[in-house]
Amino acid sequence: MAETRRPVASLWIGEKLHYLNQLCLKSHLLHGHPVTLYCTDDVRNAPEGVEIRPATEIMDIDMKLVEGTSASFLSNVFRYKMIRKTGAIWVDCDAFCHKPFPDEWEWIFAGHGMRGALNCGVVGLPRECALMDQLIDYYDNLPDYPAWWNKRQRKQMDKLKEKGGALSHAEMIYKTERTAFGPQAFTWFAQQTGDIERAMSPDVLYPVPFQLNDIFYDPHGRVEGWFTDQTVSVHLYTNGTKPWWRKNPPLANSYVARMCDEVGIEPAAALEE
């Protein structure tokens, strides 16, 4: 029986988990992390042991805004408000727990991909800190343009404004730059507060670059070749996964198939319809 460790939490917008999400949530449980899944709907296929709580305990979820952007859009503000309220570590539902998070880690975030920008798929922050203040203020009081945008991006959004229509300010920012509420915002504000110096190297939380995410489904892939002794979490990047892998069980001996066997998840029982 794994010892009890720091709680982790995530958000699910929808009625049903995909097997990859079941896999990742259960992996944290098996390493001793209590897992809370905040939900907008009555999710019934979460792994046993995952505590289901209403998302409204943290903040109201504007489903109209979700429809105009994406399910991940509001999770970008939800995660910081959740951390501030509960102190739990935020984990995306596609972050697989390779090893438990050390209890002494207070600041948990890292760069990812080939460019080195920060990702916010796994985040631990002090409940009270300047970075948290700036992130929450950014979402609660959206600027005319994100501060890091160049002239091209500003002109692109201006064109959306000129067209008029029913788009909200948040939707126009999102349609101009999809990551303006996620990694780009997190990277910018970490630079402003100086906390970017606390960033862990990619191998800790995102050992496989997202550009290579198909390797998780390749029976001949060498996924573990990307891991180091420091690797704690493995991001599976479901947003970038090809439709085939979402709708079909993983091939035998692929990393995902092996982890499902190890954790005790049946992929065929929770495929994307």
Score class of each variant (00 low, 15 high):
residue 243 P to I: 01
residue 160 L to C: 02
residue 119 N to L: 15
residue 24 C to S: 13
residue 191 Q to K: 12
residue 102 P to T: 04
residue 221 G to E: 03
residue 249 P to G: 01
residue 170 A to H: 12
residue 211 Q to S: 12
residue 141 N to E: 07
residue 37 L to V: 09
residue 49 G to V: 06
residue 238 T to E: 05
residue 211 Q to G: 14
residue 47 P to S: 02
residue 259 M to R: 03
residue 118 L to G: 06
residue 96 F to M: 05
residue 250 P to F: 00
residue 94 D to L: 07
residue 24 C to Q: 10
residue 33 H to F: 07
residue 108 I to C: 00
residue 36 T to W: 06
residue 143 P to F: 07
residue 163 K to M: 06
residue 106 E to C: 03
residue 191 Q to T: 14
residue 13 I to S: 11
residue 190 A to K: 04
residue 2 A to V: 15
residue 186 F to T: 07
residue 60 D to C: 03
residue 79 R to V: 00
residue 163 K to W: 03
residue 270 A to M: 11
residue 93 C to T: 12
residue 162 E to N: 05
residue 49 G to K: 07
residue 66 V to I: 08
residue 138 Y to G: 07
residue 182 G to P: 13
residue 242 K to E: 09
residue 83 I to E: 00
residue 223 V to P: 02
residue 35 V to Y: 04
residue 74 L to D: 14
residue 222 R to I: 09
residue 231 T to H: 08
residue 67 E to Q: 10
residue 78 F to C: 04
residue 224 E to L: 12
residue 178 R to S: 13
residue 270 A to T: 06
residue 197 E to D: 10
residue 8 V to G: 01
residue 4 T to F: 03
residue 30 L to K: 10
residue 139 Y to F: 12
residue 236 L to Q: 00
residue 213 N to G: 00
residue 162 E to H: 11
residue 52 I to D: 11
residue 81 K to G: 08
residue 66 V to Q: 10
residue 202 P to L: 11
residue 257 A to E: 07
residue 105 W to V: 12
residue 84 R to K: 10
residue 194 G to I: 05
residue 187 T to I: 03
residue 270 A to K: 00
residue 231 T to V: 08
residue 53 R to Y: 11
residue 31 H to S: 04
residue 1 M to L: 06
residue 114 M to K: 14
residue 23 L to V: 08
residue 174 Y to S: 05
residue 217 Y to Q: 09
residue 51 E to N: 15
residue 71 A to L: 14
residue 65 L to A: 08
residue 96 F to W: 10
residue 7 P to R: 09
residue 233 S to P: 08
residue 6 R to M: 13
residue 7 P to Y: 12
residue 17 L to H: 08
residue 184 Q to L: 15
residue 198 R to E: 13
residue 139 Y to C: 06
residue 95 A to G: 02
residue 140 D to Q: 09
residue 171 E to K: 00
residue 128 E to K: 09
residue 4 T to D: 10
residue 230 Q to D: 13
residue 31 H to K: 04
residue 77 V to N: 13
residue 50 V to R: 05
residue 232 V to Q: 08
residue 203 D to I: 01
residue 38 Y to N: 00
residue 94 D to S: 10
residue 81 K to S: 07
residue 41 D to Q: 14
residue 102 P to N: 10
residue 177 E to Q: 12
residue 88 A to R: 09
residue 142 L to W: 02
residue 52 I to A: 02
residue 194 G to L: 01
residue 1 M to H: 06
residue 238 T to L: 12
residue 166 A to I: 10
residue 214 D to G: 12
residue 34 P to V: 01
residue 178 R to E: 15
residue 258 R to A: 13
residue 127 R to N: 09
residue 67 E to W: 14
residue 16 K to L: 02
residue 181 F to N: 01
residue 200 M to A: 11
residue 39 C to S: 03
residue 263 V to M: 09
residue 214 D to A: 14
residue 105 W to K: 11
residue 39 C to A: 15
residue 254 S to C: 03
residue 107 W to Y: 09
residue 111 G to R: 14
residue 83 I to A: 09
residue 173 I to E: 05
residue 196 I to Y: 05
residue 12 W to F: 14
residue 228 T to Y: 01
residue 33 H to A: 01
residue 65 L to I: 01
residue 153 Q to G: 13
residue 182 G to W: 00
residue 59 M to Y: 12
residue 219 P to A: 04
residue 90 W to L: 15
residue 91 V to C: 00
residue 168 S to K: 03
residue 100 P to M: 02
residue 254 S to N: 01
residue 173 I to T: 06
residue 82 M to D: 01
residue 69 T to R: 00
residue 25 L to I: 09
residue 120 C to A: 15
residue 247 K to W: 07
residue 34 P to N: 06
